[in-house]
Every structure is written in structure tokens, then in C-alpha cells.
Design a protein around this nucleic acid. Sequence first.
DNA 1: TCCTAAAGTTCTATTTTAGAACTGTCAATA
DNA 2: TATTGACAGTTCTAAAATAGAACTTTAGGA
Lengths: 166, 166
Amino acid sequence: MKWDALEEEPCSLARTVAVIGDRWSLLILRECFLRIRRFDEFQSSLGVTRHLLADRLKKLVRFGVLRKTPYQDAPKRYEYILTQKGLDLYPIIMSIVHWGNIHMVDARGRPLLHEHKNCHKMFDPVMVCSECGEPLTAKEVHVHPGPGARKSSPARAKAVENEAKR
Amino acid sequence: MKWDALEEEPCSLARTVAVIGDRWSLLILRECFLRIRRFDEFQSSLGVTRHLLADRLKKLVRFGVLRKTPYQDAPKRYEYILTQKGLDLYPIIMSIVHWGNIHMVDARGRPLLHEHKNCHKMFDPVMVCSECGEPLTAKEVHVHPGPGARKSSPARAKAVENEAKR
DNA sequence: TCCTAAAGTTCTATTTTAGAACTGTCAATA
DNA sequence: TATTGACAGTTCTAAAATAGAACTTTAGGA
């Protein structure tokens, strides 16, 4: 499967993966949320090759996640800023960081702590249900086909059926 | 940078990306949460090459995200089940799906709807602060070095400094 | 004139991935 | 008994992506 094919899949995960589902895009976005904006800053802070960095920035701009704006005119210089669409990726980034905090830290502990400016406390992100506000776990969620559903694979249909029986 | 190097980075995002930061791992995990368990089910439902599927399953088992258990003896057959560590990836998967639902759906609408068994309503996931319960946005979060921090790049140090001034 | 900075582009060598075919074990069928 | 089919992979070659380094362009300053 080609990357382009992913964008067409009738699956919100696949389509998002087409945008951010590679190593460097996610690391670039991490830097964006840490207020990194310029080509050379990304390059020195990530150690990514300049070739790939140029390619990924272009892709993120094409998908509307970053906006490329000039910050000086002579010579022309640009910086990359998160759009609202990009800012909306924050829960993804935070949930990835949180899983790493729980399952991947070494004896030294967490590399970063997060403070919520609202309540001035160090916090962890928690995912809750928009309707009842309770924390979510995989086992408490049931999946239904939505208006954009297409016929799913036999294997998945069987799995859904098995789940419904329980 | 090699994939192995990512695991060593003093960054919870980089370390998590070392586990799930490629296209196929995320798609495999999506199927896992939809109760897909067996090699051929993954293969036919994803269209991934068998070679890569074998490789990614091995990797996910190595990292403790999946457990490979026999479900019959003659001939030996195995299935791949999410461990608790794997189940803990649910917020990542859900926040990816949610972003896709908001920013990547076409005119047909969402492919899947999610029902919360607790409150029996269709819901969206919301990320909130563990301390005050308010929804989180990037701009309301301030970052501090934690016990596992290492000296960061000059570019990032400057960016953090700039942010502190505001 | 030469040096530096920023933001890329170009080049070759190495790794990964795609796509298809092949292997081995066992059960059920003809 | 021979054949077919399911399952869980492995092996092969060709194509694509990535790493690492050098090069380019535009302009300001020593």
C-alpha cells in the first residue's frame, strides 16, 4: 500500500496516519509544541537530515497542519507555525507522551513535567467521555458503523459480530 | 537516526514513537482494538505484506504491547492479544481517530461511531487535566524539565526561555 | 574580499518496503 | 491414498525511502 492510498481509506485512523504516521512528522510536531519554528532549529534539535526535514515540513504544510510564513524579507526567511488544525493534534501528542511516561521511562524518571496554567498543578492527561465525563477504557466502548462506513473485511465483520454476542 | 536510537532518547514521545511510530504498527493496533487476533485476519483485513506483518507483530510482542498465545496445539496456532500495556494505548488510538473525524472525513461522514457502554450515548473523547478536570489545550500547558531531563538543544532551550518570558 | 547565517537542494550508498511465490503442518475431503 | 485447504509464517527480487554529506543561493557584516 502506498501512502496516498491511506488518505482514501474509509477510516479516520488511516487518514490521520497518512498525515502524522511516521517517525519524523511526530518528532517535528513535538518540537512545534515546544515553540520551535525554523528550519535550522528543527534540524539541529532533531538531527534529522535536511532532505527529510524539507520533505516533511512540505507535507505538513500541504495537509494544513503547519503554516509557512515569512519573518523577514531580505533575504526571504520563513518559519513554520501550527495552524488550528495543527494545534488540535495536541491530545494525540499528549497521549503519546503520557503512555511513554508510564511505560517507557528509565530509572531517571520523566524527562518533562507538564503544568496546567489553569490550576497551577503538575498533571497527567486523562481521556474522558464527552457525554458523561467518565474516564474511557477500551472495554467500555462499543463500535457502530457510521454514515461514512464501507463494507469491512470478512475478518473484521466476524470480530464485530463476536463482540456483539458478548 | 536509527530506530534503536529513538528508544534511548530522553523523551517519552520519542520512546513511544519507537514502538508505534510507523504506519503499519498503528493500523495493526487499530485492528487489535476491533478484536482482530490472528495472522491471516490481520493480513486480509489490512492488505499489509505478510513479511512486514510478521516483522511488526514480532516487534509489538518484543515491546510487550501484544502477547502471542497458542489457541490450538495440532498444528500449533497462535493469536496476538493486547496486554495491559497495549490496552493502555487506547487513548492514543482514540485521539488519532477523533482528529481524523474532525479534520479528515469526506462528505459521507464518519466511518465509525463510538458508544460508551456506561452512559449508552455516542461520544467523542475529550482530554482533560487529571487535577482540575478541565479540557486541555496546548496554550494552557507549561513545560518543566523533569528528573529524567538531559541538556536540551540550544534551539529548544531558547524556545523554552522565550515562552517563559511571556 | 572573505566569512557567516538561513533555508534549502543534490548526490550516492544503504535500508526498508512491496509484491509475489514458496514452505511446513495438520485436518478434512474425494 | 492422494488432494485440497487453512494457517502461520519465510524467502526472493525490484522499487522506494532514508542517511549522510556536500553543494547552492541570498544577503549582511568584518
